[in-house]
Design a protein around this nucleic acid. Structure first.
Length: 803
DNA sequence: AGCACGCCGACT
DNA sequence: GTCGGCGTGCTC
């Protein structure tokens, strides 16, 4: 009897091992590893989705095996490489196999479990179940249902007044579109036209078109291209009247863009040297990692594109990861125009269906070049020739829920499998990567110059302790404002950065000092003036802005801190004639909001772009000649050993936005710490000195890259419980560590309470602890069962956030 | 997550 | 004596 080991999708994920199932004879041909299956699970025998992990001849399991109910794929959705990658990922990130398998696939392939009830007897008029009805006698039972209502449903089921069915819906896969085509003779259309009422303008236009071309066909858009006034309802009516016939046609959701082919640009000497090193590794199938350290504007992208072109010439595929934020239309067009019809793009703006279509194009080999954000690291490419990660230092490459993977590690792993090179590119590499280049594990390639004699911007540090301020607007130095004014006069553009990391707008009472806090979390609420509400950035809590202080009823309650909205208002007062664009989480939260703003600014529809860190990347506009940093300091004072690194990166990146073309650029950095090394060196655009300085400090403090780190965090609704558990874990773990390992804590997390859960943590710094990783695997298993209800454990290897 | 098994309290 | 509370543990 053939047996399949199946990894099952159990919501609570209390198990991390496969379950054996019998493969029915008729399914034996297609029951191969990597296919999705439906299997009965548990006493209820309800179907759940799973993945075949392995197949074998017999089972070790003593009991009776249930058979696989259904196989969902004719071809496996995960090949051998992907299954191996999942297994490595699960171990590396201390996560469950099932969650790794799920994150590697587009969510369209994930099962959608739902419960429906069907009435078998009429309900009482006031029965609460009435609210759930969405059809005549049936309704959906929501996932989040209050337990009383669920219990009520179960009672009704027991008394046979209704029955509950469990269903697994596959999310829509194939998009279909209505196609309308003429189905009558020209003379018939002519007759209809003659009969049509004189005021039926739309119908007459439509018939006129059909008289001219009786077999015209196409979707709504095609028809509207001919008749711009045409409404889709007119087409529907025409179908009803028998003038047209309609049919459903399968379409890809992202039709391929018609693009012009652009060719290779002339490379500078430095670019050429980097290119040659990379292509040698591609043609020799060497698993070599390159760190491409190039100053802003030095043309790293051109090197990437040429490397991809070389891989394509060799008949190989290529993957390029970029941070979500720089996945702009300009960027995508640049790749698409270089490799027409070969590119698949994966980013968060895609709908589930669009994402699946792109995934399918890659999987079928129809797209050989993939550009995407973090999760694109799992793109189902085969025969990869080169893997690229742009802005390699970016924190967004690490996922911050399970599995907590870093896309850099994923592509390094894939490169091992494909024996191909990896290019990590950045103007400000992470210290981890730069240190590896120092040790020779990565090969360092440098681009120190901008092509075409374009100058690096000149950077001025403005000492805000002594600078003359604009009257009444203490956030602006006179110097910066004068520069902005000059740009407005010359019709050039300015970019202003508000460094808001770790800084928020909060509400405080001037009389008693009371700060309005979130009822669920230990954090003050942030003011959002556009929606007239106070919001908590850690849970979903939201409340109206109070008119008086809730503690002392004084009316002198006002907001503190610097927010983009406030700065925007002040700028508008200073320059009433200037066209301003604001870019922050509030203005970009809607789909495409980010790209809309960038496009607008690119068309020079605004003079000043004001924004948070998101403006530091991805924009490349020739008219920008001024970059101003309003407050460089805020990110320096955070209790995180990476504070300097992040500040340096942010300032360097944003400075690089100035003077990308013929016009030279200037940068003004306002700060209260003008002597700080991160600020000084960012002003000089001197990465190498920053690297040396920061490495010394990391060495003294015993931080990465000199030590590895693991963060272990426990949370519970009761604070004493969380404390007890974290100490218990420490006592258990300590004896398993060598004396060289350093344990920090246990300590409460900086924001101890979030969503009414108390968080306590332990940080372990180590160099070589073979027993630690095994111990942590054990810990995660132990925490699942028995007396650990109500606790959540989180293990984060090489965490980027320590707070 | 479901569902059953199992060991304690208030009832026909 | 029994019915049922939901704590505990298993699901191929």
């Amino acid at each position: 009897m053939a047996v399949a080991q199946v990894i099952i999708d159990i919501p609570a994920q209390q198990t991390n091992r496969p379950f054996d199932y019998e493969i029915p004879e008729e399914l034996s041909d297609i029951a191969v590893p990597g296919v999705r299956v439906l299997v009965p699970f548990g006493r209820s025998g309800h179907l759940r989705q799973g993945f075949i992990w392995r197949t074998q001849d017999k089972s070790e399991f003593a009991g009776r095996l249930k058979p696989i109910a259904q196989i969902l794929d004719l071809d496996p959705v995960l090949n051998a490489e992907m299954l191996g990658l999942a297994s490595w990922l699960a171990e590396d990130t201390f996560s469950f196999l099932i969650s790794c398998l799920q994150t590697m696939l587009p969510s369209a392939l994930r099962a959608n479990y739902q419960r429906r009830f069907y009435l078998t007897a009429p309900l009482a008029e006031n029965d609460p179940v009435n609210q759930l009805l969405d059809h005549e006698a049936s309704g959906l039972i929501p996932d989040k249902i209050d337990s009383a209502l669920l219990a009520h449903l179960k009672r009704l089921e027991q008394s046979q007044q209704l029955r509950i069915e469990y269903q697994i819906k596959q999310k829509t896969k194939i998009k279909q579109e209505k196609q309308y085509s003429g189905c009558l003779q020209m003379t018939e259309y002519q007759d209809l036209f003659n009969q049509a009422r004189a005021n039926a303008v739309q119908q007459r236009q439509l018939l006129q078109l059909l008289v001219a071309e009786p077999s015209f066909a196409g979707n709504v858009k095609t028809w509207q291209a001919q008749l711009p006034e045409l409404k889709s309802s007119t087409l529907t009516q025409a179908v009803q009247k028998g003038w047209l016939k309609e049919a459903l046609v399968e379409v890809y959701r992202q039709p391929e863009v018609e693009s012009v082919t652009t060719t290779k640009q002339q490379l500078t000497d430095e670019q050429q040297a980097a290119y040659e090193a990379i292509i040698a590794a591609i043609s020799d199938a060497q698993n070599q990692t390159f760190l491409l350290e190039g100053v802003t504007g030095s043309g790293k992208t051109e090197v990437y594109l040429d490397a991809i072109a070389y891989a394509r010439q060799q008949g190989k595929t290529a993957l390029m990861l970029v941070p979500e934020i720089s996945l702009t239309p300009q960027m995508v067009e640049r790749v698409q125009s270089r490799f027409p019809h070969e590119v698949a793009v994966l980013h968060s703006g895609l709908s589930i269906g669009e994402r699946y279509d792109e995934w399918r194009r890659i999987e079928r080999g129809e797209a050989q070049v993939v550009v995407g954000a973090r999760s694109a690291a799992f793109a189902p490419l085969k025969n990869i020739g080169v893997l690229i990660m742009d802005e390699e230092h970016e924190g967004s490459y690490k996922q911050d829920d399970m599995p907590r993977y870093h896309a850099r590690d994923v592509i390094l792993k894939r490169a091992e499998t494909y024996h191909c090179p990896v290019i990590l590119g950045s103007a400000t590499p992470s210290l981890e990567s730069r240190a590896r280049a120092q040790k020779g594990r990565y090969q360092l390639l440098k681009l120190t110059k901008r092509p075409n004699q374009i100058q690096m911007p000149t950077v001025n540090v403005v000492d805000m302790r002594q600078a003359e301020k604009v009257a009444g607007k203490s956030d602006f130095s006179l110097q910066l404002i004068t520069e902005v004014k000059k740009r407005l006069e010359r019709h050039e553009q300015s970019v202003l950065l508000l460094n808001r990391r770790g800084y928020a707008n909060f509400i405080m009472c001037r009389d008693c000092g009371h700060v309005i806090k979130c009822p669920n979390c230990d954090i003050s609420l942030t003011l959002h003036r556009d929606i007239q509400a106070l919001k908590c950035h850690y849970c979903d809590h939201q409340e109206p802005i109070p008119a008086t202080c809730p503690a002392c009823h004084s009316s002198k309650i006002r907001d503190y801190g610097v927010g983009t909205q406030k700065i925007e208002q002040q700028l508008q007062e200073l320059f009433p004639e200037a066209r301003l664009l604001r870019m922050d989480v509030d203005t970009t939260s809607r789909k495409g909001g980010h790209q809309r703003i960038i496009r607008q600014f690119g068309r020079h529809e605004a003079d000043i772009l004001l924004g948070t860190q998101m403006i530091a990347k991805g924009l490349d506009f020739p008219e920008v000649t001024l970059v101003g940093v309003i407050n460089a300091d805020t990110s320096l004072s955070l209790p995180d050993f990476r504070a300097s690194e992040r500040t340096f990166q942010l300032l360097t990146q944003v400075s690089g936005r100035a003077g990308r073309a013929a016009k030279s650029g200037q940068v003004f950095i306002q700060t209260y710490n003008p002597d700080n090394y991160a600020i000084q060196l960012a002003a000089k655009q001197d990465y190498e000195t920053f690297y040396q300085t920061e490495m010394r400090l990391r060495h003294q403090g015993g931080y990465p890259p000199y030590f590895y780190t693991v963060l272990i965090s426990v949370n519970h609704a009761q604070e004493d419980q969380a404390v007890k558990k974290v100490y218990q874990i420490q006592r258990w773990l300590q004896p398993k560590l060598s004396p060289q390992a350093i344990v920090l804590g246990p300590t409460p997390r900086m924001i101890t309470r979030v969503n009414n859960q108390y968080y306590y943590q332990l940080i372990i710094k180590y160099k070589n602890e073979p027993r630690l990783l095994i111990a942590l695997q054990t810990l995660i298993m132990n925490m699942q069962g028995k007396n650990n209800r109500g606790f959540q454990l989180r293990i984060d290897r090489e965490p980027l956030q320590f707070m």
